[in-house]
C-alpha cells in the first residue's frame, strides 16, 4: 500500500510535511520486506543530520536495516512508543509506526523526493 499524500525516497522512507516539520517512517513495502521488526534504535532529539545520514536502525529477526535522513534537518521528536512496541512499524507503518519528526532545513530539497506515483513505479505496484 502506498499513501497518496506522502513523499517517498528510493530507500523506502515516507515523509509527511506539516509546515516546517516533517515526519518520517518506513513504507508498507519496506516493513513487509523486513518482516517482524523487533528493535529500533532511535536518533537523539536536537541531532542535526544531513540527507543520507543514518537516522535510525531497524532490526528485524533476521536483518538489520538503516533508515536514512531524506533531507537535511534537526530532529525535534522521536516516537518513543517504538522502544517497547517496535511492531507498530509492521502493523501501522504510516501512522503509529512513525520514527521521528525533524525541522526541515531547506524546503528546496523536497523537490528531490518521489511522489506516490513515482514510488509505486519504483516498487512495481
Amino acid at each position: 500500500m502506498v499513501k497518496e499524500d506522502l513523499l517517498y525516497t528510493e530507500t523506502h522512507e515516507w515523509i509527511k510535511i506539516d509546515g516546517k516539520v516533517a515526519t518520517v517512517g518506513i513504507t508498507d513495502y519496506a516493513q513487509k520486506e523486513l518482516g517482524d521488526i523487533v528493535y529500533v534504535e532511535l536518533p537523539e532529539v536536537d541531532n542535526e543530520l544531513s540527507a543520507g545520514d543514518v537516522l535510525a536502525t531497524v532490526e528485524a529477526v533476521k536483518a538489520v536495516e538503516e533508515i536514512y535522513m531524506p533531507i537535511d534537518g534537526i530532529v525535534v521528536e522521536v516516537n518513543e512508543q517504538l522502544d517497547d512496541a517496535s511492531d507498530l512499524m509492521n502493523s501501522n507503518p504510516y501512522d503509529d509506526g512513525w520514527i521521528a519528526k525533524f525541522e526541515i532545513a531547506s524546503e528546496d530539497e523536497l523537490e528531490g523526493l518521489l511522489d506516490a506515483n513515482e514510488y509505486k513505479k519504483l516498487i512495481g505496484e
Binding site: 518482516g35 517482524d36 523487533v38 533476521k62
Partner: peptide
C-alpha cells in the same frame, strides 16, 4: 522459503 506471510516470530 525463508518465511511465510505470518512471519518468523509467528
Amino acid at each position: 522459503p525463508i518465511q511465510y506471510p505470518y512471519g518468523i516470530v509467528h
